[in-house]
């Protein structure tokens, strides 16, 4: 039994334990957690702790205590608040609460947790961009309706985009749909990595529609290049 009331009583203890075992089975996990002094140094450095009800110390504590219910709750309610800045790496116990969170998130995605799917809503076009084009953002994403808070200058960029890109001296930067020009052969190699490391299955677990769109794009190019998927 954990120290706190179980917030997800409908999910069985066995299921929560199974997810926790997956976290512990990650080869990186032993390097991310060595126990916890509960000193709070990580919290004092943590940007997310200043703005959310969020604490890397609680994450480290729950993991060190193996509080299965609390870990499950954090996996759903907390981990997506983390900024992944790794300011918490200054931990005197040599922990990386941010690293623990990376693994918790990955297990949440791998198991298709509803909270993970919700956290990634509105984010799928970015996943599509990075996995499909090999660069994370593109110049044509700079649209005033997407970034109204960035000021009127965004509209100017989007109005002049093609011209301004052609005015960039590095010839790799004349692109508008990717951050820089990526060779087709390079993209094929990237797609092979996604298929050979289980990433396509991870995507299917949280967003089946995205998986279908990505598969369409990738499989066509891979087949043309002579690869069987």
């Amino acid at each position: 039994m954990g120290l706190f009331a179980d917030k997800y009583p409908d999910v069985s203890y066995e299921e929560k334990l199974r997810l926790w075992d997956e976290v512990k089975a990650d080869a990186r996990f032993p390097d991310y957690l060595y126990g916890c002094y509960e000193c709070g140094i990580c919290v004092s450095a943590c940007p997310s702790a200043r703005f959310y009800d969020f604490s890397p110390r609680k994450i480290a504590q729950a993991a060190a205590r193996e509080d299965i219910e609390l870990i499950y709750e954090q996996m759903n309610d907390d981990v997506w608040n983390c900024s992944q800045c790794f300011s918490c790496n200054r931990c005197p116990r040599q922990n990386s609460p941010g690293g623990v969170i990376t693994v918790l998130r990955e297990v949440a995605v791998n198991n298709g947790l509803k909270s993970a799917a919700q956290a990634l809503e509105g984010y799928s076009r970015i996943v599509y961009k990075i996995m499909g084009t090999g660069t994370q953002v593109s110049p044509d994403m700079l649209q005033p309706d997407a970034f109204p808070d960035w000021g009127p200058q965004v509209k100017q960029v989007s109005d002049e985009l093609d011209l301004w890109r052609r005015a960039l001296p590095p010839e790799t930067l004349h692109t508008t749909k990717a951050s820089w020009q990526v060779d087709e052969r390079t993209l094929i190699e990237l797609y092979l990595i996604w298929y050979n490391t289980g990433v396509m299955d991870m995507i299917a677990n949280v967003d089946e529609g995205l998986n279908l769109i990505l598969s369409d794009v990738m499989e066509e190019m891979l087949e043309e290049a002579g690869y069987e998927i």
Binding site: L120, V127, T197
Partner: peptide, 9 residues
Amino acid sequence: ASATSNAPA
């Protein structure tokens, strides 16, 4: 941002 990948990838 999304953890939609893993250590080997």
